[in-house]
Amino acid sequence: MIYSDMLYFVENIGGKGLQSALSFKDAMSFSYLILARLFDRRAYNSAVSMVLLNQIYFTAVQILPLFLTAAICLSIAFVGIIGEYLLSIGLFSLFGPLLVNFMIAEIAPFATVLLIALRSSSAINAEIAVMKVNKELNTLEVFQIDIINYLFLPRVIAGIVSVVLLTCLFAVVIVVCGLIYSGFFFNMSARDYIATLLESAGFFDLIAMTVKSAVFGFFIVMIPIRHGTRATDELTSIPVAVRHGMVNVFIAIVIIEVLSLVVTPMISKLI
């Protein structure tokens, strides 16, 4: 009895492991397919450009009021906490490095990707699932319109562009909030503040932040698209597809964040 229970337990683990491995392999081959099209000139036409512009508007422009409010609140809170704490322990000289290496390099991309994932990834997931249920993907196939080129590619590009641009905007908000806060509460002149930031900022950090944002942008759109296409012909499959997609998006965000924390210092040392 105990032996059969253990066997069942091991089989279960093996089954789940295999399922996860297959799902990961599927996700990687789908990513490769989209990346290959990204650099194929034949994939682009006026219809794709139209979808791309719409998607950039939906993802990066419509979110601006919410995004700016969140960015200002988070920046003021973090700059205040970091500054006050460093002052209290007598290490205010680390204010610049912490602002650049923690706030700009880590918090800006992470907060940006969370906001965009909450708003746009769920919308994209639901949109593709609804199109699948309504047989609209079938329409595109019937009229020989490449689904990857027309539907997926512009959304992925818009995701990458939006996350990168909004991360840069978040970084600008952090710098401006830091300037105002340090001027008012730490009696720091603008010249000293800028000098501290410039001393702490490296070109590699900026490149790493941009690359990380682009990777975030790619996966928070690619994963919902993939799960949206997995919806069946039934309406009830839409919430299931969205739930699976969003859970996987958040797992991917955490994995990318952890990987970036491991890989970035290694590359930095090599350079």
Binding site: S46, S49, V142
Partner: peptide
Amino acid sequence: REAPLISNLSVLENIALIGQYHGRLSR
């Protein structure tokens, strides 16, 4: 009925899409 109109496009965009895609026409 198996190939419905795309619901997030207007009627004009639904028809124009075919020309944009197959005729490589401008929007």
